[in-house]
Amino acid sequence: MKLEITDAEWLCERPEVSLEELVELSGLSPELLVELVEYGALAPTGTISAAGAGSRTEAQPMQWRFASDCVIAVQTVSRLRDDFDLDANALSVAMMLVERIRGLEAQLQELQSHLPQPDRQVRRE
């Protein structure tokens, strides 16, 4: 049987995403995402049109841009909201903790990779 081949896409084609895309990718409402920004859990990196928008807090939410690596964190938060019935405030705390754990896990994995793995390597012969 010949199988259909589908191209897997990157989560985001660009290094930044808009609020609208974040809504689509996470299933969270724009209102909730705006609230997460207000609580400081999520920070826009800039705005779509730098000209005339003024500082980024003055800009309209629909003009916000976010670093696309926040998508995974926002999806995690979306799951936590559904599974634990969390409100925006609890979510913002959870999001900061989740981010911190992700950072620590990445560091741990990196450090472990630096360590020699004698059982795996040297005993091969």
Partner: peptide, 16 residues
């Protein structure tokens, strides 16, 4: 079905 995984992915990454 088959999914074509582009080169450049790394561990822990998500594709759509």
């Amino acid at each position: 079905f088959k999914a074509r995984i582009p080169k450049g992915v790394t561990d822990g990454e998500k594709l759509r």
